[in-house]
Every structure is written in structure tokens, then in C-alpha cells.
Amino acid sequence: MALTVLAIVKIRNLFAVVMLGSIYSLLAAAMFVVLDAVDVAFTEAAVGAGISTVLALGTLALTTDREKQPMHTKIVPLCVVFLTGAALIYGTLDLAPFGSPQAPVHNHVAPTYLLEAQDKTTVPNIVTAVLASYRGYDTLGEVTVVFIAGIGVILLLGNWRRERLPEDDRNA
């Protein structure tokens, strides 16, 4: 995964970058499978490696597949990246060890979900039970976000109404 990232930084041909991004997503999906997060892996493979690659390729077809040389200096972005990275690494120092049963995540609501979900919903996949039932509002919010994103793209880019006219001419 680190290799793909380095290659993405180096390569200026955006077509190759999109493909490497897809590969990166696929590797991330494999990593999620190894971590036993099958649902997340599924989403990553379908959305990250599949749909977003196609959409990025569509964008490349609309614009160009060569990256332009940056006009400003690279010092400021480099500083920002290093500061953010340092802050993130500093943040991980406080995290509980990986897989530790004492981690706060595993002691808040998770035990209740794991114990109750089976009896209350009779849905064997607890991820689905939590998503759709316990976290029903959140999921409704997510769907709303997807919906708004769809409308946004259609309103901003879609010339659906105008485009229908030539189609009708062709049929006639």
C-alpha cells in the first residue's frame, strides 16, 4: 500500500494515478478482510475500487489526463502535511493497544449490542442490526447525504432536460 501511495505521488499521468488509486482501494479492502471487517471490506471494494474509479475516469475523459506542474512552492503544503501527520501520530499515542479488550470502544455500548442484538432483532449479522436498527437515524442521515449528493450532481452537471430534445429528434 505504501508503494502504491509513493507511485501516486510520483506519477504525473492521471490515468495511471486513477488505476493506482483503485489498486490501493483493493489492497485496503483486503486489509479490512484480514481485520475481520467484512462489511467494510465489501463497501471499500465496491465503492473505492469500483464506482469511484469509473467516475474518476469519466472526469478524466471530460478534462485531461496530464497533471499540470504546480505553480507555487512546495514548502507550505509540505509543512501542512508534516504538521497534520505529527498531530495524528501524537493522537495515536493515547489509543489503546490494537485489539485490547480494555479499549473504551469495547466497553461503552458495544457489549450491549453484541449481547442484545441477537435476541431483539433475530438478525444474525450484527453489523446490519446495529446499522439499521440501533443506528437507524444515522443510516437515514447517510442515505440523505447520498440523496443530496445525487441531486447536487444532477443539478450542477446534468443538462438532462436540454439533452432530451436531440434524443427526441433522433427518434422521430
Binding site: L55, G58, L62, T139, V153, I154, N159
Partner: peptide, 23 residues
């Protein structure tokens, strides 16, 4: 509700793709 999620996600994805490609 999963059916609702599926319908919206599928149609939004197809709509976005159609919009990009149709342009």
C-alpha cells in the same frame, strides 16, 4: 429500510454516472 437504502444508492450512482458520461 435496507431496500430503501439500496434503491437510493443504486439510482444515485447510476444517475451520477449518466450525468458524467452524458456530458
Amino acid at each position: 429500510i435496507e431496500a430503501g437504502v439500496g434503491i437510493t444508492v443504486a439510482s444515485v450512482m447510476i444517475a451520477i454516472f449518466f450525468t458524467f458520461a452524458g456530458r
